[in-house]
């Protein structure tokens, strides 16, 4: 708990001034890091040193720092969020590293996610996909009682499994094709499973997958890297379900 062992690490970090800058790797040293530092706190420490030295700190997206907002987005040693099972990079702790380790830190890389600066990418494409149909078109007010539609527990549970997606985009970052099938599949499946979502199921799956393509995401080749990258462990069965919904929609 209170051991004072500290680590020194070499960081090789992607630095890019803006979208038009080609960008390059820079090397930094992270000193006095304990095993209790989270990965982002380790970067905070590096940044404090950089600022005091009059250098530009490394910018990265982060907000809740408890693994739920989906804002943090770093590829650590080639793995989105650092590769620890079901863990966002903000929840990754330095005890997973050893003194003297060299760590590569890169932004999400995908055609649909242009880099804004350093480790920050533009993920509005994910919003665009949801806007294409990731909802039920109910009005505020004028809806039936919550218990008017019975939903069997297993269905509710499976829908929740899909709904756990935090929209971080790790699935896209992990996919060799930069595809957003797991993200889209999770939302399509959540709403296809629930009776409330069934009325619009046909249009939804068509529109959302169309938006997905138009945003520049690649196609699925069933590598399942997305599931491995997902900090919430969203299962690729939801891609299968979306495929099924898509096929069904062709005959509707």
């Amino acid at each position: 708990m209170s051991d004072h062992k500290t680590m020194t690490l070499t960081l090789i970090v992607w630095r890019q001034k803006n979208a038009n800058d080609p960008g390059k790797f820079e090397t930094y040293s992270a000193k006095n890091i304990t095993e209790h530092h989270s990965f982002l706190e380790m970067l905070d420490c590096v940044n404090e040193d950089l600022i005091l030295a009059g250098k530009e700190p490394i910018v990265f997206d982060h907000d809740c720092r408890e693994g739920i907002c989906g804002m943090c987005s770093q590829v650590v040693n080639g793995a989105p969020h650092g590769g620890q099972d079901r863990t966002t990079v903000c929840q990754l702790h330095m005890r997973k590293f050893k003194d003297g380790d060299t760590i590569y830190i890169e932004p999400w890389r995908a055609r649909a996610f242009p880099i804004i600066k350093d480790l920050i990418v533009d993920r509005t494409a994910l919003d665009t996909i949801i806007q294409a149909g990731g909802y039920t078109s109910c009005h505020t007010g004028g809806v039936p009682d919550g218990n008017a539609i019975l939903i069997p527990k297993p269905i509710a549970e499976e829908a929740t499994d899909a709904a756990e997606c935090i929209g971080c985009g790790a699935c896209v970052a992990g996919c060799p094709n930069g595809a957003a099938m797991l993200f889209t599949g999770a939302k399509v499946s959540q709403l296809a499973l629930l009776p409330q979502g069934k009325a619009e199921a046909v249009a939804r799956v068509k529109n959302m997958t169309k938006a997905m393509m138009e945003c520049g995401f690649g196609n699925c080749t069933n590598h399942y890297e997305c599931q491995a990258a997902c900090p919430k462990g969203i299962n690729v069965k939801f891609i299968a379900r979306m495929n099924r919904e898509f096929l069904k929609a062709q005959f509707a």
Binding site: V143, P144, D145, N147, K153, Q190
Partner: peptide, 22 residues
């Protein structure tokens, strides 16, 4: 009470019992 109805209509997956009730 309206909030619960609203969220259910939106497809918020609230916990359910085995009979399907909230």
């Amino acid at each position: 009470n309206n909030i619960i109805d609203q969220c259910v209509a939106q497809g918020v997956p609230f916990a359910r019992d085995y009979a399907g009730y909230l």
